[in-house]
Amino acid sequence: MPRLPRLAGVTAAALALGLLATAPAAGGEPTVSDPHVVAHFDFAAGQTPENIALEPDGSADLTFAGARQVANVTRAGVTRILATLPEVADPDTPNLGAAVVLGIARAYDGTLYVNYATGTRETGIWRIAPGGGTPVQIAQLPSDGLPNGLALDERRGVLYAADSVLGTVWRVPVEGGKPTAWVTGAALDPGKVPPASGFGANGLRLHHGAVWVSNTDAGSVLRVPVQEDGSAGPIQTRATGLVGIDDFGFLERHRDTFLAALLTADQVALVRPDGTRTVVLTRQDGLSNPASVAVRGRTVYVPSSAFFTMQDPNLLLARVHQRDRG
């Protein structure tokens, strides 16, 4: 995948800010240890892992953004391509130019859903059958947008997609069909003034009855409650100052505590419910522009995209030690 041309402009600014403002680890809070890279990928072939969904066996389904592929990677690092999104003639994806596959979500039965951004009518949400196969487009999203993070709410039968350019969270029936602009607002918009990258709403997770969204240009994480009727409640800002944030993943035993992938800083930060944070993984651990995070039990998964370093896209695993805090 080519480097992200507009986002590259913020790299120097992010590094100049140095380490995030942090708070010391409190007794009994989660710690991360034993980071190790289990799989290395081919940057020249577009194997730039951008987003992640986990399988019941502990393997990871990754989107290879530049290769337009979805791959399964075991905990031992064995990689198998599950699907390739169709090639698009003359892609014109906002901010990027190239056609890229970004967010991914997994259904209970193993069906995968991915966001495909092309700048053409192929932009939208695509479905992949359990075990892999030929992707099928189930929803068209605006070609002048950039669908990025993706999450599935099987109870309500809907998918949510964060649009980084249009500052929108789209809501789409899981069976496919017309998208609805579920929530919009300035808090989701990309920045307008340099060194803004042009990436607003980015990562997206469902957590405790709400849709959580990161905004890369704002360095923020937002919480949007899902109302009883399925509509969006008021946008709440839950963390700020997360320079270069891409996606994030919640810890299972600590309410509203998450690990944030800080792509431009080559860091993963532990972010507490009060917004304070501590850097827990760095480039010295093997990170190379981390793009997302997933957590299951005591295992942390971090795909590194290498979008800027252009070296060693990989999948890193680490141990998280958690104690219940309620």
Rank of each mutant, 00 (worst) to 15 (best):
M1H: 11
M1C: 01
P2E: 02
R3Q: 00
R3D: 05
L4M: 04
L4F: 10
L4G: 01
P5W: 02
P5E: 04
V10G: 09
T11S: 07
A12G: 11
L17P: 08
A23S: 13
G28Y: 03
E29S: 07
P35E: 01
F43R: 07
G46K: 06
Q47T: 07
T48F: 04
E55C: 09
D57L: 11
G58L: 08
A60P: 13
A60Y: 02
D61S: 07
T63S: 10
F64C: 06
A65Q: 12
A67F: 02
R68Q: 10
A71W: 07
V73K: 10
G77I: 03
N95T: 12
N95R: 14
A98H: 01
L102C: 06
G103I: 03
A105I: 04
A107Y: 00
Y108P: 09
Y113D: 07
V114R: 02
N115D: 12
N115G: 08
T118A: 02
T118N: 10
G119L: 03
E122C: 07
I125L: 00
W126A: 00
I128F: 04
T134R: 14
A139C: 03
A139P: 11
L146Q: 03
N148P: 13
G149T: 04
A151R: 04
R155P: 06
R156T: 04
V158T: 05
L159S: 07
Y160R: 04
Y160S: 04
Y160D: 05
V169R: 15
V169G: 14
V172E: 10
E175L: 06
K178Y: 08
V193W: 13
V193F: 13
P194N: 01
G198A: 02
G203H: 12
H208D: 11
G209Y: 14
G209F: 15
V211D: 14
D217A: 05
G219W: 01
G219V: 02
G219D: 07
S220V: 01
V221K: 11
R223G: 00
V224W: 15
Q227C: 04
D229N: 12
S231A: 01
A232P: 14
I235H: 12
T237I: 08
R238S: 02
A239V: 07
A239C: 09
T240D: 12
D247K: 09
F250D: 02
R253Q: 15
H254Y: 10
R255Y: 03
L263T: 08
T264G: 08
A265C: 08
D274Y: 08
V280T: 10
V280W: 05
L281S: 08
Q284S: 11
S288W: 13
P290T: 06
A291D: 12
R296G: 11
R298D: 15
T299Q: 11
T299M: 09
V300R: 14
Y301E: 13
A306P: 14
M310V: 06
M310T: 11
Q311C: 07
Q311E: 15
D312N: 12
N314D: 10
L315C: 02
L316I: 01
V320Y: 00
H321V: 07
R323N: 10
R323V: 05
D324V: 12
